[in-house]
């Protein structure tokens, strides 16, 4: 199986298209607006996890931990932004 990679600098839409469980994980992390129809197809193209973390006030570390635990490799993530 190919390696699953969460790149913190890639648009969220790309990740959502690639990984079927991405949206639910994000929702559970507190990105509750992600499931509203039309959000991923608009905002999702302009926002990556680094921006999303700041916009929603959800720490990068929390996001990275959750995806690591789910078997993802974390890329372009530095804690000291």
């Amino acid at each position: 199986m190919a390696e699953k990679v969460i790149d913190f600098e890639v648009p969220i839409k790309v990740l959502a298209d690639e990984y079927p469980d991405f949206v639910q994980i994000m929702y559970d992390l507190g990105f509750t607006k992600i499931k509203i129809p039309g959000m991923i197809n608009s905002v999702g193209k302009f926002i990556n996890l680094k921006k999303g973390s700041r916009a929603m006030g959800i720490p990068l570390e929390k996001i990275a931990n959750e995806f690591s635990q789910r078997g993802y490799t974390i890329k372009n993530y530095e804690q000291n932004k």
Binding site: I36, G38, M39, S42
Partner: peptide
Amino acid sequence: YGITAPPKV
């Protein structure tokens, strides 16, 4: 321009 969901949120 068809961006309707984000402004509502």
